[in-house]
């Protein structure tokens, strides 16, 4: 009981407002801030500025881990590196064969598109980013990457890895940005079943790294192991990126909807390097004008019901 002894009695006349008055004042202040932040979105710039102030502290906190990683990379023997190099070379060779095919296919595709007089799909500039740390909030699935508005990242951009979609940039800070994973409760991805082209919307489950496909009838033609790819009809996600595979389907006759659970294809909880794609259609300016930092497919619950445009 040595920690908390009587502190020196404070000076008699300068005690300030009573604790209760302070409680009321600061509670009101926090409540007002919450309302302003959640409903009016006035605080984006304030948040960005303050985040830049907090940045050095964050660097200090993540520094040791980075150092450890760098050292452990150095310490890996030359044998392992040679081995890895050989493996990568092999993979490069295999993939360059595919790439040759891709060039001719792309050529053919543009030709066909011209024949059909369809606007040429934009080439997607890609930016490599590294995940600095996972989000700290157990309620949401978010990661922070090391590319921010200084590097030209915009809110709403799609983040992928080698296998498929990881998520979407939801908040941009000067030197980092926040990526909401597809497993987050608030993120919806328009998808298509690769086998039969059935369209649906995948919502993050919020827990245990899975996705849900709600609002599909019990008799829907979907099987375990079906691959879901992005359908591209929202103008945010480019079409054809792998999203998830169906792992379990419960057809409960009491409910009009089937309960379909999918697991993401991409390593939402494994990889360190990710790719940020630039928005698909540049003329889609309603995205910025409607809402600065909450992008349409990442709306809160109320907006979800209308998401199936």
């Amino acid at each position: 009981m040595a920690t908390l002894q009587h502190q020196e009695p404070p000076a008699f006349f300068v005690r300030g407002p009573s604790p209760f008055a302070r409680l009321i004042f600061f509670s009101m202040l926090s409540l007002a801030l919450m309302v302003v932040d959640a409903r009016l979105h006035y605080l984006t710039e304030v948040r960005q500025g303050l985040a830049a102030l907090l940045h050095p502290l964050e660097l200090l906190a993540t520094g040791p881990l980075h150092l450890y990683r760098q050292i452990s990379e150095r310490m890996r023997g030359i044998e392992a590196l040679i081995h890895e190099n050989r493996e990568l070379r092999e993979r490069l060779l295999r993939q360059s064969v595919d790439l040759q095919k891709l060039a001719s296919l792309q050529h053919e595709n543009t030709h066909l598109r011209r024949l059909l007089e369809v606007r040429v799909a934009l080439q997607q500039p890609i930016r490599l980013a590294e995940i600095v740390r996972a989000g700290r909030d157990p309620f949401s699935h978010r990661v922070i990457v090391d590319q921010g508005s200084h590097q030209g990242v915009l809110a709403g951009q799609v983040v992928v890895d080698g296998e498929g979609v990881i998520g979407q940039v939801t908040r941009v800070y000067p030197f980092s940005s926040e990526v909401t994973l597809i497993t987050d409760r608030d993120l919806a991805v328009p998808v298509q079943v690769e086998r039969n082209g059935l369209r649906a919307i995948a919502f993050g489950h919020g827990r245990d790294h899975t996705l849900d496909l709600p609002y599909l009838p019990v008799n829907v033609d979907i099987r375990e192991g079906d691959r879901l790819v992005t359908s591209g009809i929202d103008g945010i996600y480019p079409a054809g990126l792998a999203v998830a595979t169906v792992t379990s389907i419960e057809r409960d006759t009491n409910s009009p909807f089937a309960r379909i659970v999918c697991t993401p294809v991409a390593g939402t909880d494994r990889n360190r390097q990710v790719l940020i794609l630039t928005a698909l259609r540049l003329e889609n300016t309603w995205l910025e004008s409607e809402d600065e930092h909450r992008v349409p497919s990442a709306q809160r619950k109320g907006g979800r019901r209308h998401a199936s445009r």
Binding site: L23, F26, S27, M34, R47, E58, I144, R171
Partner: peptide, 18 residues
């Protein structure tokens, strides 16, 4: 701010505890 949460929710919790 560090969490990227809604502004003020930790503040409210801390104020009550304080």
């Amino acid at each position: 701010l560090a969490n990227g949460d809604l502004f003020g929710q930790h503040a409210l919790a801390y104020v009550l505890v304080a």
